[in-house]
């Protein structure tokens, strides 16, 4: 007990005025705004797909993009909440990405069924995954950097969500940049690698978000 009293006295001596971190909604808005600017800048630099006007009139393409944007926004919010030890006491919001991923899966299944006759597969393959990963590096870095200032008690989950958020930005960029109509290719090389990225995020979170 004496050691506890000593520690309390020492910690109290060290205590200076501390500015609490911003509300997680504000934090996620900052992340979303910064990433949107990054995405717009990247698309300006790399260029939109040539058939983008035509594609915007395709129901399933619009649904796919909307679901991806939803995943990006909700994972950003979830990552911000996971930075707090108690997830800002909003556990349901932390798990919201699950619903978005289910919706995304549903959209892909319906789009695949509507894709008849199936579009021709492009000649390239893993290059898409690589491009998405490279594009995701910048948002992943700043999301992790921001989260390290917090005190996550679910570091693995936080790492997974942060990386999925960054990867969804990369996927969004490539879908708006590359003129590929083959959904099979898109699922195989754009979206399925998300599973691997999620696992890498679990591992990264454990190491990078330790406090």
């Amino acid at each position: 007990m004496d050691s506890i009293d000593e520690l309390v006295a020492r910690l109290a001596q060290d205590a200076t005025a501390v500015k609490p971190v911003p509300h997680p909604f504000l934090l996620s808005l900052k992340l979303i705004a910064a990433t949107t600017i990054y995405l717009i800048a990247s698309l300006t630099f790399s260029g939109l797909r040539p058939d983008w006007v035509e594609k915007l009139h395709s129901l399933w393409f619009d649904a796919e993009i909307a679901a991806l944007v939803g995943i990006f926004c909700v994972t950003s919010l979830s990552a911000a909440l996971l930075g707090f030890p108690d997830q800002y006491q909003k556990r349901k919001m932390v798990l919201a990405p699950i619903w978005l991923f289910i919706l995304f899966l549903l959209v892909l299944i319906l789009a695949l069924r509507a894709d008849s006759p199936a579009a021709q597969l492009p000649v390239h393959s893993f290059q898409c995954t690589l491009s998405i990963t490279l594009m995701a590096l910048v948002p992943a870095t700043w999301t992790f950097y921001a989260m390290r200032k917090f005190a996550s008690t679910h570091s693995r989950l936080a790492g997974c969500v942060a990386l999925l958020s960054a990867f969804s930005v990369g996927a969004l960029w490539l879908r708006l940049h590359e003129a590929t109509d083959s959904l099979v290719h898109v699922i195989e090389w754009h979206y399925l690698p998300m599973l691997v990225i999620g696992i890498v995020g679990l591992w990264l979170g454990k190491w990078l978000l330790k406090w």
């Binding site: 910690l11 205590a15 501390v18 930075g83 030890p85 005190a151």
Partner: peptide, 11 residues
């Protein structure tokens, strides 16, 4: 107690 001290900015 040390962890509370380190994480007090998140409250």
């Amino acid at each position: 107690l040390v962890s509370i001290h380190k994480a007090r900015h998140t409250y």
